[in-house]
Structure formats: C-alpha cells, structure tokens
Write a protein that binds this DNA or RNA. Structure first.
Lengths: 211, 211, 211, 211
DNA sequence: TATGAATGAGCATTCATTCAT
DNA sequence: AATGAATGAATGCTCATTCAT
C-alpha cells in the first residue's frame, strides 16, 4: 500500500514535471530564453508561478531541462542504424523526410539552442557530447561502410558527415524562413525529398560525363 | 567654408552611427536581442546611454539597423554574377570558401537574425525581400543556365537553389557548433572547400555506376 | 472554512488597494500627476514599488482609480435630495457648508483633476458623465421645482445651476489660495456660510428697491 | 551709432524673450509644468533648445516668467476702476463678460498656476501680493462705496469680494469642463452674462417677497 | 505540495542641462 | 549669441525569485 502511494506520488511528480517542461518548451521556443517569462510558462502549464520552483532551481535550470528533454539524438541514430542494411537511397530519403516533415516548433527549439549555446560553454560541451557527436559518429560509421563497400567515392568521411548534417539543418532553416509560400512548403513533400536525395547521391552535375 | 563645416558635421554623425552600430552588433551577437542591454552597448561604444537615442529611436530600431548594416546579399550575389563565365567548379569553390572563411561573429549575427525573425513578421518579410530572394534569384538564374547548357542534370531549379543555400548555412552552423576542435576548423580550409565542392557537383555515390 | 479563507484574502486585497489608493491620492495631490513618482507612492504606502503593479496596470490607471475613489457626486446629490422639502435657505446653507468645511487635500485633488482633464478626453467624458452631469441634473430639478412653486424668479435653469456649482468651486479655490490668513479661513465658518447663503438667495443689491 | 546698435540689440533680446515666453506659455498650459519639455518649447518657439538657457536660468525660472507675463491684475483692476461711476449692473456685466469671453488658453494657465502654487510657497506668496490682493482690494473698495451709498445691502465686504472672485473663477472652470456642448458655450454670450449679472445683483429668490 | 502576493534589482527610455563649436 | 550633440540622473515598469499560508 505504502509503496503504491509512493509510486502514485512519483507518477504525479513526473506528470507535473512533464507538464512544466512542455509549457516551457512552447514558451521558450516562441520567445527565446530571455524574453520568455516564468509567468507565461506557469500560465501555459496551468499552474502557479511558484510551483515551477518546486521542480526546477531557476529559469536557466528549467531551460537546460527543456533542452535535454526535447533535443535528443536517438530518433536520428535509430534511423541510420536501421538503414544499414537497406539501400543507400532509401536511407537518405528517410533521413531527409524525417527532418523536413517536422513542424516548425522543432526548428524554433533548435535555433533557440544554437543562440544559447555560445552563452554557456558547459551547455555547448554537453550538447556536443550528447547529441552532435553520437549522430556524427553513427553517420561516419555508415559512410565508412559504404566507401569500403565501393558504393561511395573515397570521400573525406569527417567532412562528408558534416556536409550531410549541415544540409539537413540548413534545409530546415530555409524552409522555415521562406514560410508557407516557399517551394519547400509549397511542393509536395515527396518531390522535395526525392530531389534532395538525388542531389546527395549524385550532385547536380550531369552524371557519367567522363564515361 | 560653410559646406566644409556641414560636411564635417555629417562625417562626425556617420562616424558616431558606425561606432554605435559596431558596438550594438557585438553586444547583440554576444547576448541576443533581449538580453543585450543598452547600457552595455553604450559602454562598448564608449558613449553615454542617452546618446544612443540621438541616433536610433529605440532598441529594436537599433537592432534592425544592425541587421541592415551587417547582413547584405551583395557580396554573394557579386560572386555568382562574376562567375557566370567561369567553370562551375570554380564558382562553387568560391562560394563555399567565401562562407566558410567568415569569422564566428558573422555566424552569431546570422543565428541572431534567424531567432528574431519569427518574432517580427515585418522583419521577416523584409529579410526575405532584401536578402533571401535576391540571392535565390541569382542562384536560380545560374542553375537554369547550366541546366540548359547541359552541364547540369535537369534538376528542379527551385529546390536545388535552396539545397545550395541550405548547405552553406548548415555548414557554417556546424562549423560554429563544433568549434575549434571540429574537422571544419581543424582541417586546412582548401581541403574542406574542395571536398564540399566535389560533393555538390557529384554527390558521394560512385560516379557512373550505371555506365 | 474555505469561504472564510477566501473572504480573508479578499479583505487583505481590499485593504492593500485602499492603502495604495490613499498613498497615491496624497502624492498625486502634492505633486501633480506627472511629477508624482511611483517610487514615492510606494514609499508613502509602505510597500515595494513593484507591488503597486499587482493592483494597478500603470500609473495612469492608478490615477483614474484615485479619482473614482475620491471624487464622487453622491454626498452632494444626497444633500440636494434630502433638502427638497426643507426651506431653500437651509439647503443652500448646507451645500455651502459642506463644500467650505472640506479640507485642503480635497481641493488639491479637485484642482489636480481639473488640470488633467483636458489632457485625457476619455477621462473628461467620464468625469462629466459620472460626476458633473448627475450633480447638475439634480440641481436643475431642484431649481425647476422652486421656480414653478414661485419661490424663485423665472431664472434660466441651466445657467443658474452652473452659477451655483461654479460658485462652490470658486469659493473653495479662493479659500485655498488665500490660505490660513484669508477671510474665508479666518472668519467663523457659520458667518461665511450665512453670508454666502444670503448672497445666493438675494444678491447684494438692496432688496425691493423697486417696491 | 553705438547706442543705436545697443538699442537694436536690446530689442532683439526683448523679441527673443517674448518669443520664448509665448511658446513656453502655450506648451506649459497644454502639458502642465512637469510634462512640458524644453524641447517642445524650443520647437514651438522655432529656436534651439540651448538658446532657452541664454535667457532663462532653468525650466522653473522660465515658468515663473511665464506666470509673471501672463497672469496680471491690471486688466481687471482697470475694469473696476473705470466702472466706479457707472451704474452697478454695467460693471458686473462688464466683469462677467470679460471673464467669460476669454478663450480656454487662459483657463489652462490659471489652472496650471493653481496646481503649481502649493508646490512653491514663494510663488504663492508672490501671486497673492501681485495679483490676488490688488484685485480683492479694488473690489472691496467698490463694495464699500456701494454699501455706503445704499445701493447694496450691508454685506460683509471681505466675504462678498471673495464670492464675486470665486464666482468668476468657478464659472470659467465649469465652462471649460463642460466644453463646447455645455450651456455656457452653447447659449449666446450676452444671455449668459445677463443671467449671471441678475443673479449677482438679486440672487435667485423672488424679489421683494417681504414687500 | 501548491499558491500567488511581495519584493527589488534591473532595464529601456526621457529630458533638463551643459558646453564645445 | 545660437546651436544641438552629449550627458547621465531619474522614472515607469517588468520579472525572476522568495516565502508565508
């Protein structure tokens, strides 16, 4: 019984934390770290302002928790790992599709993260360790495998991994900046994905021009 | 003589504005729009806080002026136009090199702009008109010319232009996030540029696999 | 029990509002609207500056609340209504006495209101509706009744009502401007009241000069 | 020649002072002392902000000069003196008419003066000596003469003088507060003047009711 | 544990005044 | 004498954080 009670308590605590994190994520990504107010976060979460401080030491602590909660490498790493056996075109398509089909909120969080990273050395280090490096490592493993199997040119693995990650990030930013009227939003998603995939695999030059 | 006087006055005004803009740029890119204080901007510029308001209506006006002063499409458009007659590999190299050789401050300003754009519809619209669209238009013209000349595959012009822009933006972000220890900073610049150029022209797949 | 709690809370809120309004009234009437500082109001109320803003949106809102709290037509209207059956001399005496026995603070508030009215059209309109018109209406009703009963000359009702109101206002101002040494303060109150009453009823000309 | 030059200089100085005083009067009466800015005064006068300080020590000094320049007892005293020989009804009419036909600017200055008087003891004292007392003295002399000549009841001279002054002030305030739509503005001026004159001479009670 | 009133440091902005030209 | 840029103190207002209930 007692344990049951404690469990329930713990559950409520978890729920409350989730509730706050979700609200904080929305407000932070809408306003940016400094312009976001604890008052608006509390309102969004449907709780009192003071309650936030029962779960998080201060605003920055809450922000860091939001980043940990919503910026994670697992989904993208999963994609790469599951794709190791599939053919390359499928993997790239899946990756591109995954990124481009996310909604704008994620882009906002990402941009937010970017702009806060260089104000907080510790955060930047942690983001590198927790998110960037795992993804890049996985990509590098994949690139090594396809280079050694002869399916890819003998590219510089490190640089190419960064090219791929950079391309994903950049596309998502362009998509967001141009908004609803931009081609990346206007065209059917699969058309965009297929075009990007072809680009990644073959560049834009006429193929086999030396053949 | 009189004109001389007026001219000198005008020069002083210009200098003072430049002085404030420069300081504002530094502080804004270090702190972000909201966290930047007019007090720190004034201190950085070596003037009194009130003096800022003799030249700019308010903090947001100053911010917009900074953006206009430091985010301009001309250099990149110039590059594309001057390259129309050169061979494609040279143009791409030049573009990539131009972007990757910029210092971090510019990246900060760019990220800053991105994160403020979606809080200010007017600013976003203006940025599209003043910067994004001119660059994309120029790129699209270039792509059309090389497609029709047979030097490029019959790609979707619109999407490919965005791929190129996105790639530039993304690379610069990755370079910034990984910092001094990342490959994009560690490797010789020309090596990175050459790798990116090859990627853009041919992708990473083994060429002519169907030949 | 719960209700008790809520009630207590409400009481505290009321008290706090009253505390702020009282302080604001003092400071506003001492300094005028613009010269009054929220800092001094807070100090006078014995609270922190920020606390004011838990109860009032901004300084102007606080000012308007002060006006609503301290400038009300009810007492004067009550006087007129209760006097309808009494003889006219009694009513006039009561009115004059009521006005002249107020302390200087009220005069300050009144002057303050006057000087702010023409900077704020909305406030002026509201003051007319809430205070001026009700009093004038009541006075006009009274004047009509005494004219039709033959106790008064067939005066222009509208103008005479304004003469009476103006006389009250003006006397109070003269009393304030001349200060302690002026006759309106030096002479016994009932003497002044009686003199004013006689003036209102009969003017200063020798009565019945045509009889 | 030299003297001529100096004279001209003096004239220019006078003109400049007048120009500043006039502008200051307009701005002060529109905004009130604190809310009026030296910047707006300078703009209104068509001069540079700094120029004000060549003629007036500071803002308060300028304000006091405005008061001295625009609030003077002479016109009203002149009216009373010139009327000594005329019949009483004419004098009262002239007084009332003089006050009620002034435009709103003067009322604003008067209200402004009132609200500043009690922040500056010296100013209040001076206003009493320079303006209030001379007018009241003149009125008292007049009242004494008509009482002793039997044309007026044996009123309390001091109080009655204040009643008359108060009535003028109050009427003007009511006229201003009610604005264009109020009866004091809507009705023909001579009708209002005549009504007020009759009131002052005879009150509103039916005349000769004891006769 | 949740609440939300109270706090006061901090910020953008204004403005009277000065002073070099 | 006139100018107007520069100054910086002062102000209204916000908001993260605390704490009594």
């Amino acid at each position: 019984m007692k344990q049951n009670k404690e469990e329930r308590k713990e559950n409520i605590t978890k729920q409350r934390q989730e509730q706050i994190l979700d609200a904080a994520m929305r407000v932070f990504s809408k306003r940016g770290f400094t312009a976001a107010t604890t008052s608006e976060i509390a309102q969004t979460a449907g709780i009192a302002e003071g309650t936030i401080y029962n779960y998080y030491k201060n605003k920055r602590d809450l922000f860091i928790s939001v980043m940990h909660r919503y910026i994670v490498p697992e989904p993208i790493i999963g994609l790469i790992q599951r794709a190791q056996t599939e053919d390359d075109s499928n993997l790239i398509s899946a990756l591109v599709n995954d990124r481009l089909s996310r909604d704008f909120r994620e882009i906002d969080i990402f941009l937010l993260l970017m702009s806060e990273l260089h104000r907080d050395k510790g955060m930047r280090q942690q983001y590198l360790e927790d998110v960037t490096n795992p993804i890049l490592n996985e990509l590098e493993k994949y690139l090594m495998s396809i280079v050694s199997s002869g399916r890819a040119r003998p590219v510089n693995i490190e640089v190419t991994a960064r090219i791929l990650v950079g391309l994903m990030i950049g596309l998502v930013i362009v998509k967001k900046v141009e908004g609803e009227q931009g081609p990346l939003n206007r065209l059917p998603n699969n058309e965009v994905v297929s075009e990007v995939t072809k680009f990644i695999l073959s560049g834009f030059q006429t193929k086999c021009d030396k053949a």
